[in-house]
Amino acid sequence: MNGGHDLGGMHGLGAVNPESETDEPVFHHSWERRVFALTLATGFLGRWNLDQSRHARERQHPIDYLRNTYYENWLAGLQTLLVDSGLLTEAELQSGSCGKGFPDQEIVLTKKEVKAKLQEGKSVELPVAEPPQFVIGQEVIVVNRHPIGHTRAPRYTRGRRGTVIHQHGGHIFPDDHAMGDRTGQHLYTIRFDAGELWGEDNAGNEQVYVDLWESYLTSDGAKQ
């Protein structure tokens, strides 16, 4: 979706103003710690996946997304996921008190399991039967498509020409994953010249590399 999260190339946002590396705390407020931990812990309930969780944040009104701090966006996303999955009701969220219904027996992350679960991670590789359609060194064009659901093809790449520089094999396709479906597609790293993306007047000796799934790409109209 063309939401408030798809920021590459946006103007008017000001300077980066980084805090000094040695002074910056991991969390700036106590409540941020809790939002972070609640998001991870409820994620382990297995009711939603990473792309659904990203999509829940992206679905906010763009004004809210941009006005919120980072962890305010996490909180907004978490509340959406809890209600959508039926773990909490809107009324419970609003009142802060428990209604009558309790969710079915859930397998809850315990302190003892935290280390192992984090260390184990979750691979997103998913073998694809068909061979990759594009080869390294080939020119491709990003399909100019504007899906209303979750997607990981940034707006600034659509319709642009790039070169395949890496094949990663099959990875879970995020557009389907955000709808709860687990399908695999070949993933590639595509190199774009800055001039192709931002216009020759704005570009110097720079390239942008973007990981893109096979169905985001086409060879129609590209140099053979």
């Binding site: 809790r34 972070f36 609640l38 969710p103 859930e106 992350l109 315990t110 935290v114």
Partner: peptide, 22 residues
């Protein structure tokens, strides 16, 4: 955030000690 955490603990969906560990 406190209210949300209490709600989730009361519902048995998170373990506060696991949150601290995370």
């Amino acid at each position: 955030v406190k209210a949300l955490e209490s709600l989730l603990v009361e519902k048995g969906l998170v373990d506060p000690e696991a949150l601290d560990e995370l």
